[in-house]
Design a protein around this nucleic acid. Structure first.
Lengths: 192, 192
DNA sequence: GACAGTCTAGGACGTCCGTCCTAGACTTCG
DNA sequence: CGAAGTCTAGGACGGACGTCCTAGACTGTC
């Protein structure tokens, strides 16, 4: 794996533009301008736009894996870790209000385009899904772990979509609080 | 308001294409081919692509208003009406699996594009929001009506997003059942 | 200093886009 | 019949796109 600085800058700029403006609305020229290099330079590192996208997805996967590992180091309890995930919508609130969830919006866009990289984009969602599932197992919910993980994913996606539509912080706060309360309810039941 | 047949066909085809392929991925040529007319013909009815989009949003608003009115005629109870909304994700299951929620995906896409019509697209969501709010008021939940409406909207958007990502019918069924159960809980509380 | 390998700039290419123009066909009605 | 208004086809236009090519600058090694 090459670790050219230019290559990394391209991926970083593309990542940002795909998120803020959407994959389809981002051109080679846009990326070149963001990195302040020539279009031909990008072509040296990536033969096609799909290759750039693949590299961006790979980078996102890696960054999310690192984040989850960090959370596991910082949060001793499974509940604390799940709460970390739930809190994303408030921690990244301003970005989500403007551009939506980076994971959800990309997979939705690629689905409509029937893009070859669609499944790779879904992998990012699956990364969170399996991680959340593990946490629920540790919470003593082995039987329903995947169902509960999907519930959390689903709730987050819904909150992100409406946050993006209405920019209503009170709504996000309320939903996050309710999700946390629901999580505590689960734990109580498990201890019985 | 003109009611030209050609105009209506253009709006209908554009509506379909915007949903299935996305607004940005749909060109004048695509629409012309779908209706089997010339590109210049479209221009006679709509001066710009934004005008087509505006007409599509207007048509969707009208069609949703009609749908809600139909529901009110068919369902005598507020709970039945809300359940009708919740059931959308199963009734339109196949489409949502492939293309996502028509309302959510459009508003998200227009938000990224910072498109002038973004607010008009959000209006469709608001139509459901206020309608749901009214139903919750009738359910005896006047104090929390808007919060509950947002909860239902949020849940639906989340389910639609994950249904689109994983094409998992069992997940959708389960979430719908849980939402219905939650709704009954609300009613019981209200009657106490 | 010569050379090979790596990286970069700049622009050519064919294609498709949104928009706009023009010429003509069709309808309506005096 | 003929004139006015409505609708349609087809293509011109300037620009932006993804892709690709070429020439040269840079770096390290002998």
């Amino acid at each position: 794996m090459t670790t050219s600085i230019t290559r990394e800058q391209i991926v970083h700029a593309a990542d940002d533009l795909f998120y803020r403006r959407g994959f389809e609305h981002t051109s080679f020229t846009d990326i070149a301008r963001a990195v302040e290099i020539s279009k031909g330079n990008i072509y040296y590192h990536f033969k096609t736009m799909a290759e750039v996208l693949r590299a961006v997805i790979e980078a996102r996967l890696q960054s999310k894996r690192d984040m989850l590992r960090r959370w596991e180091a910082e949060e001793p309890t499974a509940r604390g870790r799940i709460e970390r995930y739930i809190d994303i919508v408030t921690v990244n609130g301003p970005d989500i209000e403007r551009y939506g969830c980076p994971v959800g919006t990309l997979t939705t866009e690629l689905a409509k385009l029937a893009h070859p990289c669609r499944d790779e984009a879904v992998e990012i969602l699956t990364l969170f899904r399996t991680w959340l599932r593990d946490q629920f197992v540790r919470l003593g919910q082995a039987d329903d772990a995947d169902e509960l993980a999907m519930r959390v994913l689903s709730a987050s996606q819904g909150i992100a979509t409406l946050s993006n539509a209405y920019q209503d912080r009170a709504f996000v706060q309320r939903e996050v609080a309710d999700l946390r309360a629901w999580l505590r309810t689960l734990e109580t039941v498990a201890h019985e």
